[in-house]
């Protein structure tokens, strides 16, 4: 039986990294289909194109291969997917009235689940699991930001929960005394980075870069809410 090759290929060496683009025909077909469908339904073509281009970049570019070697690269990919592409896509969709708290809880559960050792390992053993991870994370994050956008004033507890759980996970990861993911035990060595240092980098990026991106989204939502609410109503009094 052939050993399974993960979706993004075997862990690359630093020298070959920049040549490792993932031109998977199914991926490309899926992206084209998503673009066609999205452009039909989006209300904001620019934002949708931006989100789509970022998603395409995250999976086609060498970042995908790098994430096979470095857990920190994988985390960077997930941060960009859930905290940049997802809110951008949410802003390109028609307003969805979803209850913010349940969606935020779903996102939290998925986020913790997929980064725990066993499920994480599973994503490296099957394409199906790999895509289940990314689609569920991306989908739940998009729905969550769509819910925040639709009713920002009612989303504050859910946003607080999301900020808190992302930070908590990042803290645990940063301060963990041993590496979690056996997959990365040897893959980080060519990058002159121990697996623990790689994991600490991943945690700190999640904590800080993730935190700041989340804040930027919150700040933007707050500003939009204030500016929209500030427009005087049509039935203004004398």
């Amino acid at each position: 039986m052939d050993p399974y090759t993960p979706f993004c290929g075997t862990p690359p060496l630093p020298t070959e990294l920049l040549t490792r683009w993932t031109f998977d025909p199914v991926l490309i077909a899926g992206l084209i289909a998503a673009f066609a469908i999205g452009m039909r339904y989006t209300i904001e073509r620019k934002r949708f194109t931006g989100a789509w281009a970022l998603v395409a970049f995250l999976f086609i570019s060498p970042l995908c291969a790098a994430s096979m070697a470095l857990f920190s690269a994988r985390v960077a990919q997930h941060i960009l997917l859930t905290l940049v592409a997802a809110p951008l896509l949410a802003a390109a969709l028609p307003k969805l009235r979803l209850p913010p708290m349940p969606v935020a809880v779903v996102f939290a559960v998925l986020f913790w689940f997929w980064h725990a050792p066993a499920p994480y390992q599973a994503t490296l053993e099957s394409d199906l699991t790999y895509w289940a991870m990314h689609l569920s994370l991306f989908g739940s994050a998009t729905l969550m930001f769509a819910a925040f956008r639709a009713t920002p004033e009612q989303s504050i507890p859910a946003a607080a929960l999301t900020g808190a759980q992302l930070t908590l996970f990042a803290v645990v990861l940063t301060l963990a005394p041993t590496p979690w993911h056996s997959w990365h035990m040897l893959t980080t060595i060519p990058y002159e980075l121990g697996p623990l240092a790689d994991q600490q980098l991943a945690g700190a990026m999640m904590w800080v870069a993730g935190g700041l991106l989340f804040l930027a989204v919150i700040g933007k939502l707050a500003l939009t809410f204030l500016q929209e609410a500030d427009v005087p109503p049509a039935k203004s009094r004398p």
Binding site: T167, A197, Q200, L201, L215, G219
Partner: peptide, 24 residues
């Protein structure tokens, strides 16, 4: 509002001297 959220993510900078991972 942003400061409100931000202030909860940064407590570790009071602990630079406690041996936090160098990477962070």
């Amino acid at each position: 509002i942003t400061m409100g959220f931000l202030s909860f993510g940064l407590w570790a900078h009071h602990m630079f001297a406690t041996g936090l991972p160098i990477m962070s």
